[in-house]
């Protein structure tokens, strides 16, 4: 079963990776999307905009709670990914498969699950819990980043699937943590309101 899964994973990887190297514009776009600065910055700017968004104070407060959930979920997903990396050291595609010329720098950490994809899915899901519409929109950058990680040759598709489930778990944990510490987020928002920043 696992061998079959790995063979499917490898086949899908080779198919997506095979798309690279043909159209320079798309290669450039994928390199831009997958790098460590561009998309995280976009997500950060969206979260800033979310914090101030809406005319109505109640709707704004929901967005602010969504920002808390997204940030917490992002942090938790990072921790889960680190733990998974320690428990299961999966080599990167370029370490195992022949003739893989990646479009991105090589890493020496475990391939499974994809940290970047987990972070983006965690943010999207964290927002989705409070604001469905925006949460669906934020899935677009998450999917783009996930696809680009495979396209440039640094992750298998299964790493992305793992990242998705990691994000799901971390979002549930983040949501529960926010419920448990409930007076705290409300107090922070109230404090920010007092200094006219929320």
């Amino acid at each position: 079963m696992i061998d079959f899964l790995y063979s499917v994973d490898k086949a899908v990887f080779l198919w997506i990776y095979g798309l690279s190297g043909h159209v320079p514009f798309i290669d450039g776009l994928m390199k831009l999307i997958t790098n460590d600065i561009f998309m995280p910055m976009i997500i950060f700017l969206i979260l800033i905009a979310m914090w101030f968004a809406s005319h109505d104070q109640k709707a704004r407060e929901i967005n602010q709670r969504a920002v808390f959930c997204a940030l917490l979920s992002m942090g938790i997903s990072n921790v889960i990914v680190k733990i998974c990396n320690i428990l299961y050291d999966r080599p990167r595609p370029y370490d195992v498969l022949p003739n893989i010329q990646t479009l991105f720098h090589h890493s020496d950490d475990s391939s499974f699950p994809s940290n970047m994809a987990a972070v983006f899915f965690a943010v999207a899901m964290g927002v989705w819990i409070y604001n469905r519409k925006l949460g669906w929109w934020l899935l677009i950058p998450a999917v783009l980043v996930s696809f680009s990680r495979v396209y440039v040759g640094i992750h298998y598709p299964l790493d992305i699937v793992g990242a998705f489930f990691t994000a799901m778990v971390s979002t549930v944990i983040a949501f529960l943590v926010l419920k448990v510490i409930e007076p705290l987020p409300t107090k922070v928002i109230k404090l920010m309101r007092k200094i006219y920043l929320a």
Binding site: K31, L32, N35, D36, I37, F38, P40, H105
Partner: peptide, 20 residues
């Protein structure tokens, strides 16, 4: 953004997350 990404090739290692 255009200025930054045309000035530096960000396909290499850039930052650790805490520094960023």
């Amino acid at each position: 953004a255009t200025w930054f990404f045309t000035s530096y090739d960000c396909t290499g290692l850039t930052f650790d997350a805490p520094v960023q």
